[in-house]
Amino acid sequence: MTFIIQQLSWHKRRKATVEPQPVAISVPDFEKVLNHFCTVEVTFDNGEVAKLTGRVTQHPITGVWSVNGINAKGQSVSARYQDDNNDDSV
Rank of each mutant, 00 (worst) to 15 (best):
S66I: 03
P20Q: 05
S89R: 13
W65Y: 11
T39L: 03
A50N: 04
D84N: 15
I61D: 11
P20R: 02
V23H: 02
D45I: 00
I5C: 04
L52S: 02
G74I: 03
G74Q: 06
V40T: 02
T17M: 11
G54I: 00
S89T: 14
N35K: 11
V23C: 08
D88K: 14
I25Q: 05
E48I: 01
A79M: 10
I25V: 14
H36L: 00
R55C: 08
A50C: 10
K15N: 14
T57E: 10
D83A: 07
E19W: 04
D45E: 04
R14S: 07
I61C: 01
Q21A: 11
H59I: 01
E31W: 03
R80M: 13
K12T: 09
Q21P: 03
P20I: 03
H59S: 10
D84Q: 13
P60R: 05
R13H: 15
S66D: 12
P60D: 06
V90I: 13
Y81S: 02
P60A: 01
Q6L: 06
Y81E: 04
Q58D: 00
S76A: 14
T53R: 15
F3R: 04
D87V: 08
I4A: 12
G54P: 00
Q75R: 13
P22L: 02
I70H: 07
I4H: 15
F30T: 02
D29H: 03
Q21I: 12
A24S: 15
P22Q: 01
K12F: 12
V90P: 06
G69L: 05
S76M: 13
I61M: 10
F3N: 01
R14D: 10
V33G: 05
L52F: 01
V42Q: 05
Q7I: 05
E41P: 00
Q7P: 05
S9I: 03
S66Y: 14
V77A: 07
A16E: 10
Q75H: 11
N46W: 01
S78G: 13
Q82L: 09
T53C: 09
E48K: 05
A79L: 08
T62M: 06
A72F: 09
W10A: 11
G74M: 06
P28V: 02
K12L: 14
G47F: 00
D87Q: 12
M1N: 03
S26A: 14
P22W: 01
I4Y: 15
K32I: 04
V49A: 09
S9P: 00
T39R: 07
L34W: 12
E41A: 08
K12G: 05
P60M: 03
S26G: 10
I61H: 10
D29C: 00
S76K: 15
F37M: 08
V64R: 15
S26F: 03
V56I: 15
T17L: 12
V23E: 08
S78D: 10
L34D: 12
K15I: 12
F3K: 07
E31K: 12
L8H: 02
E41K: 15
V56T: 12
G69H: 05
V42K: 07
Q75F: 07
Q7M: 06
V42C: 01
V56L: 10
T62I: 05
V67N: 05
Y81Q: 02
S66H: 14
V56E: 07
W10E: 10
N68L: 09
V23T: 11
C38Q: 00
H11P: 00
Q6V: 06
P20K: 04
Q82P: 02
V18K: 15
N71P: 01
I5T: 04
M1D: 07
E31T: 03
